[in-house]
């Protein structure tokens, strides 16, 4: 990394907290597994740093809220790694929704992880135990961090940690953290989450969907399939006067009446989303303005995904109060809003 950045003094730390205790760092990029994202973001903010954190940003509703509360209280800059907010084609689609060209918005569609590759929810399985490597190869206890202990298996550290309850939020959170986020952004609903969640397709990996409704009546459908094959991470916005759909490929499909207002974005321009997103963050570190994927937007999109996940796991419809982060009349669902962290970790 040092060579890549043009200097040779890139320091490496086995202990993240040693790095965070340095007094000369303005901002950090957090690109660990999901299990560490919230805890490290909060610790970095407490250490006076701004944070760019990969998504998913949290493991639970409670973590999402703690993240937003901390950054609001401390006034640090937070950018979630939901780079599509700075992708030209997604921005064009969002603008069509915002400026009334679609008429009255009726339904937002967010593609969640296609179930054949990203099952909607995770398993409680353990892989068989293998001998733990030496700490300088992999500090297993540190790798697990706040998650429940389980025996070492080399598959986890080769990237196959996804799909397990302790480490991952399933296909719903994996893609929903991008696409639900885009839907809420386009609809001007960054400060809330749907109030109703109805899961469909339980018992098989695909097709599946969660049909949600906001307090203002707007529908949000999280579904894994039946989009227009425009790439990964589709979004589709439908209004009384028209519709628009796009995805990572950059192509934008619309209803006939909007064809002239939605030029396709060349693939290379669409791919600039990540660079634009990092630029947005760095500009905000300097200006102290709010980046596009700020803590509140990220928190609320994640809350919506976690609520959808809980509805899917329980296999029943849920009513949610986004002002209090509480499910109404469902104690089991409320219990699933948080998880105890393994000692000594806490947020």
């Amino acid at each position: 990394m040092g060579r890549e950045a043009g200097h040779g003094d890139c320091a490496m730390y086995a202990d993240q907290f040693e790095l965070l205790s340095r007094g000369d760092i303005d901002a950090v990029l957090i690109a660990t597994g999901d299990r560490w994202h919230t805890l490290l973001s909060i610790q970095a903010a407490k250490a006076g740093m701004d944070v760019f954190c990969e998504k998913p940003c949290s493991m639970t509703i409670a973590e999402s809220r703690a993240l937003a509360d901390t950054f609001q209280r401390l006034g640090r800059i937070y950018q979630a790694g939901t780079q599509r907010r700075n992708g030209s084609n997604f921005e064009l689609a969002a603008n069509l929704a915002r400026n009334g060209r679609l008429g009255q918005l009726q339904t937002l569609h967010a593609q969640v992880g296609p179930g054949d590759r990203w099952p909607p929810i995770t398993t409680f399985d353990w892989l068989p135990a293998e001998p733990e490597p030496p700490n300088d190869v992999c500090d297993w206890d540190r790798w697990l961090g706040p998650c429940p202990w389980r025996p070492f298996n080399s598959q986890y550290i080769r990237g196959r940690w996804r799909g397990y309850f302790d480490f991952h939020g399933g296909g719903i959170l994996e893609w929903g953290s991008h696409t639900v986020d885009l839907c809420q952004w386009a609809a001007g609903l960054d400060e809330t989450a749907p109030v109703e969640y109805e899961p469909r397709g339980m018992g098989s990996d695909t097709p599946y969907s969660i049909h949600c409704r906001y307090a203002n009546g707007l529908q949000l459908v999280m579904r894994d399939s039946d989009f227009l094959d425009l790439g990964s991470c589709h979004i589709r916005f439908e209004g009384s006067e028209g519709w628009v759909e796009t995805a990572d490929g950059g192509r934008i499909e619309t209803s006939e009446n909007l064809r002239n207002e939605s030029p396709d974005v060349p693939r290379e321009v669409a791919r600039a989303a990540t660079a634009n997103h990092v630029r947005d963050f760095l500009d905000c570190v300097k200006s102290r303005k709010t980046p596009r994927s700020n803590y509140l937007a990220a928190c609320q999109a994640h809350v919506a995904c976690h609520a959808a996940y809980i509805a899917f796991q329980l296999g029943r419809s849920l009513t949610f109060d986004p002002a209090r982060d509480t499910f109404e009349g469902d104690e089991m669902a409320n219990r699933m809003r948080s998880r105890a962290m393994r000692e000594p970790w806490k947020i």
Binding site: T123, F124, D125, W126, L127, P128, A129, E130, N153, S154, Q155, R160
Partner: peptide
């Protein structure tokens, strides 16, 4: 070897995680 490493653990008396849950 890789397939074996990916086989979920099963308790001899109580069964799989899903069965226990």
């Amino acid at each position: 070897r890789e397939n074996e490493a990916l086989q979920p653990m099963v308790d001899g008396k109580y069964g799989s995680a899903a069965e226990i849950m």
